[in-house]
Amino acid sequence: MAVGLFIPCYIDQFYPDVAIATLEILERHGLEVAYPASQTCCGQPMANSGCVDDARPLAVRFLELFGDYEYVVAPSGSCVSMVKHHYEDHVSGLAGFQELKDKTYELCEFMTDVLCVETIDARFPYRVGLHESCHGLRELRMGKSSEVAGPNFSKTRRLLEMVEEIELCDLQRPDECCGFGGTFAINEEAVSCLMGLDRLADHEQAGTQVITATDMSCLMHLGGLISRQKKPIHMLHIAQILAGGRLPGEHH
């Protein structure tokens, strides 16, 4: 099974460990993984800001680079939902787009839906607070959002529960937005930061030691606040936990 690995631009630049963890998870499942070197970004920053025309070339490039793989996997619900929901206007006429939409997966949903993972060889003896990143939750429907009626489920939580010795914390507001929102973090700086601080307070009351999420962008925002406030909470992308990663400073 040939998998094309898409690494969001800011993960490539700021969080290479998250990308390496993603690659390792896929390789461990015996998949043939390739990282097309000329990839950059899904185009979301521009599309999000109303500059859809500036995002178009990136959508075309994404289709060119990834159209031939059997699956495309990315450690980001947000970028995947960009491909699935916002590429339509740009590349809907081009060959291979409908297939691309169907075969592009966020890492966790790829693990649960395609690889049908039932066990995970990882141990993580901490109290972990799961931040349900909005786009994975409400765009990709990787879990039931608290607004919608019906039976509860969460693909990310299910995977985390397979990790040995992990303890998942209960939040008062299980899926409230962290306030990152792309350019929103700058446009609406005051509200964005208050939203983030409120999320942190919820994790603190729940006794969270490590916050994890499917999107590193949420964690970049929350982590920036934590580091400024010198709070004793760590941030790890879910790929790092599922790959058997440790906290910085801890020995293998």
Binding site: N48, G50, C134, H135, L137, R138, E139, S145, E147, V148, E176, C177, G179, F180, G181, G182, T183, F184, N187, E188, V191, S192, M195
Partner: peptide, 14 residues
Amino acid sequence: LPFACSLCGSCTDV
């Protein structure tokens, strides 16, 4: 106003 939104999607679901 359309930028006073983090695109979290909670409104659509509620």
